[in-house]
Each structure stands twice: as C-alpha cells, then as structure tokens.
Design a protein around this nucleic acid. Structure first.
Lengths: 237, 237
DNA sequence: GCACAATAGTCGTACAGTACGACTAATAGC
DNA sequence: GCTATTAGTCGTACTGTACGACTATTGTGC
C-alpha cells in the first residue's frame, strides 16, 4: 500500500517586497505585469516574483535571492521571510501558494529596470495608496503585511541599519528610523539607545560637511543581522 | 505567446506545531509516521500535517484548521502562521514546500489519538531533546522555530492567555507565563503589567480553594487576539 | 582673526515602567 | 479563636528613555 503523491499541486511562487529609501521616502520596488494573452492582471503593477524553478532553485530562499539579484543587482541584502499566502482563488490560473520575502536595500545605485526600453520596474513611495490599492493578485495584502512587519520591527530592532549605506553617521541612521516611523525622534534618546544596544560600531573615520564632521559607523560585525532592544520581564542582574 | 504554467510543482504540505500545557510543562503534539512501504521516515515522530487537498481546502489556513480539528477536536484555537520551508531535499519524494502553523490550545480534554488502537499521537514536553532531535523530515528545525517564536512573544504579548482555560485566575495565568519562560516572575510586577495592558477582564466571579478565593478573568473581548505590551520610542503624551 | 551659521554630540532632569520584598486580606480546617 | 494557605497590594529602588538646553567643531564671509 504505497500512498500516492498528490497529482494536483498548487502553483508555487515566490514574491519579494523590496524596500529602500529614495528621496527621503520609504519606497517599494514594483514591476509591471506582462501584457501577453492569458496573462493575469496584464499591465498592472505587482511585487517582483515568479514561479519556483524546481530545476535551478535549491530552496525557496535561493529563489528569492535569485529574483532579487535579477531585479536590483544586489547580492547580499537584508532578507527575511514574511509568510505565505495560498488559496484557490488568488490566481485565476488555479490554486496557488506564494512564499513572500521582505528585503531591505540601501544605496541609489540600484538599477530599477531589467533591460527593455519601456520601464518595467520602478520605485513607489509606500504612502502612494493609489498604486498600492491597484496591485495585481492579492499583492495589496502582501505589501500591507510587509509594511506592518517593518513598522513593528523598527520600534525594537536595528532593522533600519539595512536601509542606509555604510559607513553612515548616526544622524543618517536616525533619519532612516524617522522615515520608517513617520515621525521625528529625539536625538539624545536615539543615540543613547543605539549605542547602548551595540548594534553599530565606529569606523574611526569622520565625514565633514559645512559644519562639524560626524563620526562614521558601520553595522557591528559582532552583532546579529538583526539586534533587538531590551525587553521587559527581565530579572534584575 | 501564452506563458506555460510550470509542469513541475513542489509537493505542498501544511504542518502544525500544536502546544499545550500538560502536567505543568509546555508540550507539543507529535504523530507517528505511518510504516507503509515507500513512506519516508516510517515510525518516526513528526509534527502533524499533510498534503494540501486542492479539492477540499479553500486556503492554507483552512487546511491547518482542518488538520488541527482532526487531531485535537479543537475548533477555535489560537493559530498563527510561522513561516514556510521549501527545498529540493527536505522530502525524499521530491522538491517540497511546507507551510507551518503554530497553534496554542488549553484544557486537558483534548484527545491525543485519532482512532486506532496503537497510540498514534501523543504530547511531548518540549524540553525532551531526545525526541525532538529525532523527528522526521526537517521537523526538528520547524519545532525549534516554533519554540523560538513562542519564547520571544511571551516577553511582550498576551500569548500565554491561549494556554489556560477560561475562566482563569491571575495566578494560573502567571504560571503559564512562567512555564513558557522557564523561570519565575515577580507576582506584583506581573499583575500590574497584565492588568494595565487590558488584555484580561474580570468575570466578577471568584473561585475558592482552601484559602482566599481568587478573582476569575477571561480574555478581554475588546482586546485583539494578541495584545502587545508597551514599546519604546513612544513620544510623551 | 572674528563673528556667524550649521551640524555633531553631550548633559541634566523628569518620568514611565517595572522588579522586588514585605505587607495586608480572605478563606478553610482545626 | 489560631494557623496554614493562597490572593492581592503597597512602597521603594532602579532602569531606560524622552526632552530641551547645552557645548563642540567645522566652514564661510567679512
């Protein structure tokens, strides 16, 4: 009695919500759906992604890294899994399940288009509800979940470190936090918290402007990729 | 130019890490793999789960709820998605992806076996590294991730509320927190934090023992299914 | 050189939240 | 009553942060 493997299997995709700061605003990378016949949601904006390639993708994360490199050229971003969405109706072509990843990248050197002449990919401010509300598939939900994750984690982790280019000044890092949070934070409180948490380390260098030069920092090598700020319920030392 | 849908698709499953408190210990529900020919990991313990049924499961979460009801009889547990794991090698039968859910249930009335005479399912203390280290597939990793999620969230959410039967006393709830955290917490601090957070509400009833009766509480109807304790970076009111 | 603008970085205080042990409160059993 | 037992509170110390005001260091214009 050999148990049969299911003949019908879900269409399986990986989608990525890639965030970066452009012109002082938190932006997400969107790509335009192809307009071919039988293509769902032709011409609509969507999160970059696509079918898992069982021949070439060793794992879901491999697949996400590959797609991210194809779209942005970035090889080593901050990447974490957001979750998975799967049901019978989210794709008109059939029962489909997508594995969604969240990526943060820094720097303006990212190419937003893959090759064609027409712009196929572009950055959109996350506050642009006009575009976000008309995304293909259920990508509006995926994007909302990704934003919620970022906005929750900015409160108690070092996540925005991955949105600024190294080396960075503490003021630049503070600006990244403020952009994600959508409100200003106090300078002294911010600096103490960041430095006490040990998530950045000084390079010893300084960057001068038209005023007092600022000390340059990088992500602490010793720290985890994501550092957490102190939690409660901790016993007294 | 109609784009072809991928002919090869991953084996797609849903697995659930179901936790409950038994005899004062945090336990996870495991099931025994069938011993048929060509069955992977025959006779080994594994997280309950199985293939997504495209005909009957409307969504991944539906699938998780169904499997959980089959195993435990519980219809309305606390259920959240943990993540997904997928690669070419985790299942010897082929490229497979599993969507993992985390469930918390309360009460001892849960039937740990589905029907047969041999015990097919049982509760295991999560501290039992002997069993956890020999689970089928990559379920050791999934279980570790589920435990990490629970142990992180216990610090700043009302999650253990779903591990105690309603109505409960604050002492019982505190015990659930302590079991998950693995260490005692101060009574006065615990009560103030829980009550200020508004995650429980009094029933007005009391339960007497051989000592002073304790006030009975339930999960606050107004509160979210999961309440969060105060975070930092909050501006002064 | 010197005032001045501009940005970096620090100081001191107030306050929220909590960790902690010791206290009071209410019940059952004797 | 007295005692054991568990429920619940009080007061204090302490940690971490929010906040505005302060000092520090540079470039620029005169």
């Amino acid at each position: 009695m050999t148990p049969p493997l299911p003949a019908k299997r879900p269409l399986t995709t990986v989608d990525i919500a890639i965030f970066s700061i452009r012109d002082g605003r938190l932006c997400v990378l969107l790509v335009k759906r192809p307009s071919g016949k039988d293509e769902p949601y032709p011409g609509r904006w969507a999160l970059p992604g696509g079918f898992v390639d069982l021949e070439n993708d060793k794992s879901l994360e491999d697949c996400a890294v590959r797609k991210l490199r194809e779209k942005t050229g970035v090889a080593s971003p901050y990447l974490e899994q957001l979750g998975s969405w799967g049901d019978a109706k989210r794709d008109p072509r059939g029962w489909s399940a997508t594995h969604v990843y969240l990526a943060l990248i820094a720097g303006p050197e990212v190419k937003p288009e893959a090759g064609g002449n027409a712009p196929e990919a572009d950055w959109f401010p996350v506050a642009d509800s006009g575009v976000a509300g008309r995304l293909a598939f259920d990508h509006k939900d995926l994007l909302a979940a990704a934003l919620a994750r970022i906005r929750a984690k900015v409160e108690y982790t070092s996540l925005p470190v991955h949105l600024v280019d190294e080396p960075f000044t503490l003021t630049e890092l503070q600006r990244a936090y403020e952009i994600v949070m959508g409100r200003p934070v106090n300078k002294a409180a911010f600096r103490k918290r960041i430095l006490d948490a040990g998530i950045v380390e000084s390079t010893g260098e300084f960057r001068g402007g038209q005023a007092r030069p600022a000390e340059l920092f990088r992500h602490a090598r010793a720290a985890e990729r994501l550092a957490y700020f102190p939690r409660t319920f901790s016993p007294r030392p």
